[in-house]
Amino acid sequence: MPEIQESCTQYRTSSPADQQVARFRGSLDWILAHPKWEDALVCSLLMLGFKGKRQGIKQHSALRSLPLEQKQELVRHALAQGLPIPSFAEAKRLAQLWGVTSYRARSDFGRPSQCEWETLSQRLLIRISARYELYKSAQSELFAAYHGLAVAGAVESCSAPSQREDACQEARLALLEAIDHIDPSQNFEAYARRWIKRRVLNFVMTERLPVKAPINVISKSFRGVAGANPLLLKAIREGTLQLDQPDCPEISSDPNLTSEPANSPQRTAMQVEELACLRQALSQLTEKQREVISCRFGLGEHGESLSLSQVADRVGISRQQIFQREKRALQSLKTALVGLQRERQFQVPAASGY
């Protein structure tokens, strides 16, 4: 594929676009790593609905692991709400990172006054907005240069034609994530290839098996690693078992014990209750999240499921933002419907002999 190789070679060495993205990310990470600002940042994190501290991940690591789009939104929100006043040396360093040249040193090395800090915060917000535009321009430039690499990675790792379009979308999202983690001192092409391959393979594995399990567990079973889950190994061989299905005694094959009719009053009442729970869960989403979920799953007036690209074109934002918005919405729905899920899992059929 000569066109792909030619388009990638021009960025084998460090470029202004590489440095622009890395500089933007580094300046944001410096703010997110400040220990005195962690509480204020967590407050903004909760208000924006971003993913924070969770099992196995500490708060400062969760802040640093956010997507670059969310990092800049979080920092801007925290600055607008008001961060605690830092020391003068820290304020000076912050001004240098964002190119606020009008901020001058003082002889007493104390803390800036409230007025000085508010003025600096306003200038920082302006600089962050300007740097964000430069970052988006650099991201678009790198994405155009390496887009062929994403398509080639998707074709290489996904052999099913029916999954090819979705695999290409996953590869493009992986390329955007790799760009956000770019290091000008490293070979970006090799790094992006690994990132794309891992994400596409994860997508293929989750789509191939009717098994609900963490992707790393599925990957170990595919590779035949010792100690893999025996139920998962059976599911891989037969393609019929779900790990989240509760163990239950086999139902008698007695013909006199018939299952509950589909139109029975009990089943109808259950469906009404489930529909009410789903509507309540959807009402708890933000308006933007409901819009994405409606488009992606055909819940709108047209009843047509749209791809990430189609939703991005309709809403007017990037595919990455649509993906992140959908991911947060599905996580919220999963949390809201956990009670209903447990109730359905442990329901005993009426034909169980009782």
Results as ranks from 00 to 15, higher is better:
Lys334Tyr: 10
Ile293Ala: 06
Pro230Asp: 02
Gly26Ala: 14
His77Thr: 09
Pro86Asp: 08
Gly110Tyr: 04
Ser129Gln: 07
Val272Trp: 06
Arg123Asp: 15
Leu209Cys: 10
Ala78Cys: 09
Leu209Ala: 03
Gly239Val: 08
Ser221Arg: 04
Arg279Ala: 10
Gln122Ile: 01
Ala276Thr: 15
Pro214His: 04
Leu275His: 12
Ile128Asp: 06
Arg23Phe: 02
Lys327Glu: 15
Phe188Glu: 05
Leu275Cys: 14
Tyr354Arg: 14
Ala262Asp: 15
Leu257Phe: 10
Arg123Asn: 13
Val211Thr: 12
Lys212Phe: 06
Tyr135Thr: 00
Pro249Tyr: 00
Pro35Arg: 12
Ser129His: 13
Val311Glu: 07
Ser121Asn: 08
Ser15His: 14
Ala22Ile: 04
Ser252Ala: 04
Ser259Tyr: 07
His302Val: 05
Trp37Phe: 10
Gln284Asp: 14
Glu170Met: 09
Lys58Pro: 01
Gln310Asn: 14
Ser294His: 07
Ala262Cys: 05
Pro210Thr: 07
Val42Thr: 10
Asn229Met: 09
Val292Gly: 00
Gln139Glu: 15
Glu156Asp: 12
Pro161Ile: 09
Ser157Asp: 10
Asp247Pro: 09
Ser61Glu: 14
Val315Glu: 03
Phe346Ser: 03
Gly298Ile: 04
Ala192Arg: 10
Arg328Cys: 02
Glu301His: 13
Val272Thr: 13
Trp117Pro: 04
His302Gln: 07
Ile57Ala: 14
Arg199Thr: 06
Glu287Tyr: 03
Gly298Met: 02
Gln20Val: 12
Lys92Glu: 11
Tyr135Cys: 08
Pro249Gly: 03
Gln169Asp: 11
Gln242Phe: 08
Val21Ile: 07
Val272Ser: 07
Gly300His: 11
Ser113Ala: 11
Met1Gly: 15
Ala91His: 07
Ile236Thr: 05
Asp254Ile: 05
Leu241Pro: 00
